[in-house]
Amino acid sequence: MKEKATGYSDKELLDIFRSEGRRDYAFNLIVRKYQERLYWHLRRILIDHHDTDDTLQNTFLKVWQNLENFREASSLFTWLYRIATNEALMLLKQRRRKFFVPITDVEKQLGNSIDNGEYFDGDALQLKLQKALLTLPEKQRIVFNMKYFDEMKYEEMAEILGTSVGALKASYHHAVAKIEKYLENH
């Protein structure tokens, strides 16, 4: 997959990373190639810009620490998304554990982040959709975002989320039905 930002395919980037004395250069290219896509993926999960920024930086830190051992069992793109998704889920989980906050309250906090609207630029319908999304269970929300907004293939999503294509299809179908119901009633 070629990308305008760097002009290198993932395979080429990994080859550069493995060549003597070029690790920093290759890592920087990888960051520049994927920073925006990963940012928006995380932002849809975490809503808040500052949480997203922290999580994105932690994601790339993990990538740096583990890239040497990456054996290409999956594509680089899938691997990066997997780390980022895990980091986001961990952050939400830690928040609940640390403050003994029930799931619904975490979603409420995320909803408040939208209402504060420091970095929200959508119209009323988009705001309503974001609120509808927050009524979904975390992982179902991620499935919906990846399919609906990122237009990802189920096969790629299955690799990233570590579950089967069938489970993802069912999950997406349920998510759409729940969102539609929310939109009808609000």
């Binding site: 928006w40 810009h49 970095y119 959508g122 119209d123 907004f149 539609e180």
Partner: peptide, 11 residues
Amino acid sequence: QLKDIPKGNPW
């Protein structure tokens, strides 16, 4: 209903 909502990035 979902189909009528703009798919663009609101952030």
